[in-house]
Deep mutational scan, measured.
Amino acid sequence: SASLEDVKTAVLGLLVILQTKLYTLPASHATRVYEMLVSHIQLHYKHSYTLPIASSIRLQAFDFLLLLRADSLHRLGLPNKDGVVRFSPYCVCDYMEPERGSEKKTSGPLSPPTGPPGPAPAGPAVRLGSVPYSLLFRVLLQCLKQESDWKVLKLVLGRLPESLRYKVLIFTSPCSVDQLCSALCSMLSGPKTLERLRGAPEGF
């Protein structure tokens, strides 16, 4: 439990870093931090981490990651405290083949985003970082199938509809809506759902 406290501190630090690096160059920093966060949550489900502190780590990670939004130009952003989304000039939600690297070039400044813009690109060529939603999407499927803490599952179920409104997140990387529907149906009809959940409301 003591070591998990250190892990929790590290994860919180990564969330803060991602919130900053999403809007700064090099964009590969945001890509790497995002991948680290998603990989860490995957390990929770792989090794069945069920301690309360592990659940709190997942809760905080999902609470942040499910706020990711994308505009029509595929640029990622996060809402501010007033709910207004600021889109990044440097990070996009497109999935890119590994051989192309985590970044790609664009020939010049991008068109203005639909929300308040981030800082304008400084040079004639900007390297865009790929932060594909499919990585998070796979972890969300694991959550629906394996999550043991009701608070975490409730958060994910509550945030998913709003995330799905931003269709560009889903359609720019390999996210299977069929698998999502299947996971939701299995969660509702499967007898093991109630068996594994802690803290579920009576009558769920």
Rank of each mutant, 00 (worst) to 15 (best):
F87Q: 03
E202T: 09
P109G: 14
A125L: 12
I57C: 03
T193I: 13
F171D: 11
A2K: 12
P79H: 05
L25R: 13
K167M: 07
H44K: 00
F204Q: 04
H40K: 00
R32N: 03
R75N: 05
Y166Q: 10
T31M: 15
L157F: 03
S111A: 12
S102W: 15
A27E: 07
F204C: 11
I170C: 06
W150E: 02
V131N: 04
V38P: 00
K151D: 15
L164M: 06
E147G: 00
R138P: 08
L157V: 02
G203D: 10
Q19G: 07
P109W: 14
E147I: 00
T106L: 13
C185S: 05
L4S: 08
L155E: 06
K154C: 06
I53D: 02
C93S: 08
I41Q: 00
K46F: 10
Y23C: 05
Q19L: 03
P109Y: 12
R127M: 15
S1D: 13
F87A: 05
K21N: 03
C181G: 05
P161L: 06
R75F: 06
G101A: 14
G129M: 06
L37T: 06
R69H: 04
D82P: 04
I17D: 01
Y133S: 04
Y49S: 03
V84R: 12
V168K: 09
Q42G: 09
C143V: 05
L136V: 11
T31Q: 15
G108L: 15
L73E: 14
A2T: 14
M96N: 14
Y90C: 07
K167N: 05
L141N: 04
I41G: 00
V139W: 01
Y95S: 10
Y166G: 06
A30M: 05
A200K: 14
L4N: 12
D6H: 04
T31S: 12
L128G: 11
E103Q: 12
P109K: 14
R69L: 01
V38S: 04
K192T: 14
T31W: 05
V38L: 12
L188I: 08
V156A: 03
E97Y: 11
K81M: 12
L180I: 05
I17V: 09
L160C: 01
V156S: 00
A54D: 01
Q19F: 04
G129E: 15
L18R: 01
M187E: 01
R69G: 03
V33A: 06
V11A: 13
T106Q: 12
K21A: 04
L157D: 00
Q142H: 09
K167A: 05
P26H: 05
G118D: 15
Y90N: 06
V177F: 04
L180Y: 01
Q146T: 09
G190M: 09
P191D: 15
G77H: 03
R127A: 11
P161H: 11
L18W: 06
S88I: 02
P191R: 12
S182V: 08
D149V: 03
Y166V: 06
R86P: 04
L110H: 13
C175P: 03
P89Q: 10
T50H: 11
L18F: 14
T193W: 08
V92W: 05
P132Y: 04
T50Y: 09
C185G: 04
S173Y: 03
L67A: 15
G115P: 13
V84P: 08
S28F: 08
G129D: 05
L157N: 00
E162Y: 08
T106D: 13
Y90H: 08
D6T: 02
K192P: 06
S111G: 14
L153G: 00
L135Q: 13
E35L: 09
A200I: 12
H29D: 08
K154V: 04
I170H: 08
K105F: 14
Y45F: 02
V38Y: 03
C181V: 11
R58N: 00
N80H: 09
K46I: 12
G199F: 10
Y34M: 07
V7R: 02
M36A: 09
R69D: 02
P112D: 15
F171R: 09
P113R: 15
V152G: 01
E97V: 13
P117A: 15
S134V: 08
S1W: 05
T193Y: 11
V84C: 10
M187C: 05
K192Y: 12
P52C: 04
C93Y: 02
C93Q: 03
I41L: 12
Y34R: 02
G101Q: 14
S173N: 04
P52W: 02
A183D: 07
T50W: 08
S102A: 10
K105L: 14
A2C: 11
S39R: 13
L197N: 03
V16G: 15
K104S: 10
K8T: 07
K154F: 04
K167S: 06
L25P: 15
T20P: 01
V152F: 02
S176Q: 06
H44G: 01
C93F: 03
R32M: 06
L25A: 15
R196K: 09
P191S: 12
L140F: 06
W150T: 02
S176T: 05
P191L: 08
K105T: 13
D149A: 04
S107Y: 12
K8F: 06
S111M: 11
V131Q: 03
S55I: 07
R32A: 05
T114H: 14
T50L: 08
G115D: 11
L15W: 05
G118W: 12
G199I: 06
P132D: 10
F171C: 15
S134I: 06
T24R: 15
S102V: 13
K145S: 13
K104M: 14
L68W: 05
L128K: 15
T20V: 13
L43N: 12
S176G: 06
R196C: 05
Y23A: 04
G203I: 04
